[in-house]
Each structure stands twice: as structure tokens, then as C-alpha cells.
Design a binder for these strands. Structure first.
Lengths: 204, 204
DNA sequence: TTTTAGTCTAGAATATTATTCTAGAATTGA
DNA sequence: TCAATTCTAGAATAATATTCTAGACTAAAA
């Protein structure tokens, strides 16, 4: 209708919608945030929003999937540069802690958002991400398990054992339930992770 | 208007509403479940539902708070009968696993439900429950920490370290992401918990 | 037993807000 | 330049959470 802002290189719009949505969600909760609100904050119209995202749930799903992808991707990169059993375990723990620390609102949103109402599409994307993450960890550790440096446990259990405590602490910290920052607990949690799955070989 | 069912001993109605709501939520998700649906399934009218619960979120909050209370209460009872450091750690882990196993739909609901949109009232109730749980654990362990049987760690970290892995595995299992039941992992997770916080004293 | 205050129920009316729809503007690629 | 496609706008619609009014039930008092 009126003059449209300027030449948008075709990906800025969806980004700004997601950014605005995340801000709203984090500030007032997903249910409480209206589409009108997101329009206001992002400058996009209802039409644009529904053009890029099929529904409000679609926005939620995109934020979730993007967040996990970003987080996993960072871990992958660091793990590629790591070597050794203990080093790998610590890298995984610290990478998660760093991501959460640098993306607090995003992390808070991810933890606070139920996966109950996701669309099939996003549910599937999530599953794939989880599987890929799992495979990555498995591939890294397998040799060390074979060498007896990492305890032989059911494959399903490594991720929960290594990261479960971090997730749990992060939830509380982000909710304001605990003062000490997650970052300051890095050693506690990576020590603990190694204590659980590690079997340091005594030399000789 | 028409003949009302029968003499209700005044607490059956809210219970049946919660039960119906949980069934609906578990089957089709919270957002997808309409109040009309809950009316149908519970036999209650809109009016009744809003008489007992101020809003849909109110139902969600009640289910959440009741579930956690039930779960914590069970742990408390078992812990009262337990003694010893290692025994305590294992009791806590196993009690959680048992509750989840016996209340799968409820647990799935709790995990899948974001705490983002709770009313102030329920948010507060939740906080109190968490605090109480935390205090209980702390009270039980303190003597053992003093005796050097349990590692001296930041107080905030015990619950995440002991239960984090169970929560993480439970989420996946309840979502169908993993075949082996949580119950079958009891030893893995209670062993791990003890490995992290325990410092078995060698005799002599 | 009758009265009365409080609690609970019913379902229609309302209000909010996610979603759809139509028309047109901007962009892309040939 | 000219389609074809993608994007934008905002009004119209539809779904559904919530409110409201009237009345039924219950328990205790008189």
C-alpha cells in the first residue's frame, strides 16, 4: 500500500520477526504475546508474518529449532578441534554452558517452551537435530570407550549423564532461582561429567 | 436446569475436571485442547470449570503443582525411612524414577508444559515446593557432608547433579525417543549419582 | 420444617485474538 | 520490458477463552 521500507535482501524480514517475537516471548510469555504485538515490535504486517511463518506456533518452532541448531553447531566446531577423552567430555559441557551464557533470553525461551504443541514439521526437525547431536557424540567417544578410557554405558545414557546436570542448573539460574551464574559452575559440572563417564587410566 | 447428576461430595467435580483435562492435554496438547473439550470429557459445564479454576492456565497450573507435590511427597516419605549417605542418594533417584514410571501421562505433561505462562499464584506455589524439596535434601545430607561421606559441593548443585540425568532421560523416554524404559535404567542413574556426590570412606 | 447464605451449575452472550483473504507492490529472471 | 513470483498490507473472519445472569443445590440456623 504505502511505500515499503526499502530494498530488503529477502531474509531480513523473517529475521526481524523472529527477533521481535523472541523479545516479546521472553518479556511476557508466549501465550500472552499477540501477533499484533509482534507486528508492532518488528514493523512487519500480519500478512508478512503469516507469509513466512504459517502460524504463531510456527514462529515458536522456528525459534526452537534455530536455537538448538546454533547451539549444536557450536559444539560440533569445538569438538572438531578437541582431542582426548577427558577433553571431549569437558568440551561438550563447556560448550553448552557458553552457549547458554551468551544467549540467555534464547535459552530461557527454549527451556520455558513446551514441545507439546509443535507442528509435525518442527517436531521432525527437532528429532533430526537430536539424532545428529547424538551421533556426533557417539562418533567422538567410541574409540575412547573401546580403549577403556570412557565407561561402557548404554549409549542412550551418555548425553543425559553428561549434560543433564547443566540443563537442570541452567533452568533454575535462568529463572532467577539461584544467584551463582552457570558460568561460574563450569568446573563443578565438567568435573562431575568426567567423574561419571571417565575412567582415567593410571600410567604404567 | 436439568436434574443435576447426584449428590457430589464437593471435591469430585474439580478432580474430574483435572483428570479430563490431563487426558486431553496428554492426547492432543494443551493449546489444542478447548474448554469445550474438557466440558465434554468431564461432564462439567463451562460455568463449573471457571468456578473452580479461574482460567485454562489455572487448570494447567493446578496439574503442575499437584504433580510436583505428589512426587515430592513420595520422596519425602521414602527418605524418612532411609538412612546412610549412599542409601539416601539412591532413594532420591529411585523415588523419582518410580513416580515417573507410575504417572507417565502426568510426567509427560509436566515435562512438556512450559512454566512460562503460569499465574503468579502457581509460580509462587512452585517456588515454594522447590525450596521445600531443596531443604529436605539438604537436611538429610548435611551430616554426611560433615562426615566426609558426601562431597562438599555448592549446595545449589546437589539436586541438578543427582537428578539432572534422570530428568533428561525421562524426557526422551516419555516422548518415545528411546526404547529402554526409565525403570530399567535405575541402576545406571543411581550408580552415576553416587559416583558424582559420594566419597565412600575406606574402612580403617 | 422452613429459611437463608453460600456454593455450585448451566449455557448463552461477549470479547479477544489467531488466522484467512483480497488486492496490490516489489523483485526476480528471461 | 515483461511475466512470474514473492512479499506486504490491513480489513474481514472464525475460533474459542472468558464473562455473565439466572437459577439449583447444600448445609446450617432458627
Amino acid at each position: 500500500m504505502t511505500i515499503s521500507s526499502t530494498s530488503f535482501s529477502s531474509k531480513r524480514r523473517p529475521r526481524s520477526i523472529l527477533a521481535a517475537a523472541l523479545a516479546c516471548f521472553d518479556q511476557t510469555g508466549v501465550d500472552e504475546t499477540t501477533i499484533a504485538e509482534i507486528c508492532r515490535k518488528s514493523g512487519a504486517s500480519t500478512g508478512s508474518i503469516y507469509h513466512f511463518f504459517d502460524s504463531k506456533q510456527g514462529i515458536v518452532g522456528a525459534l526452537l529449532v534455530d536455537g538448538l541448531r546454533d547451539n549444536y553447531e557450536q559444539t560440533r566446531q569445538r569438538l572438531n578441534k578437541a582431542s582426548g577423552a577427558q577433553n571431549g567430555v569437558r568440551t561438550i559441557v563447556e560448550s553448552l554452558i557458553d552457549w547458554i551464557t551468551r544467549n540467555r533470553a534464547w535459552a530461557r525461551f527454549i527451556y520455558a517452551t513446551g514441545t507439546g504443541s509443535l507442528t509435525a514439521k518442527h517436531r521432525e526437525a527437532l528429532r533430526q537435530l537430536n539424532d545428529a547431536y547424538f551421533e556426533m557424540v557417539k562418533a567422538y567417544f567410541q574409540p575412547h570407550v573401546d580403549a577403556g578410557e570412557i565407561a561402557a554405558l548404554p549409549a542412550d545414557c551418555y548425553a543425559p549423564l553428561i549434560l543433564g546436570p547443566v540443563h537442570e542448573y541452567a533452568r533454575r539460574w535462568l529463572r532467577g532461582g539461584v544467584k551463582t551464574s552457570l558460568g561460574q559452575r563450569k568446573n563443578v559440572f565438567s568435573d562431575a561429567a568426567w567423574r561419571v563417564v571417565g575412567r582415567s587410566q593410571t600410567v604404567g
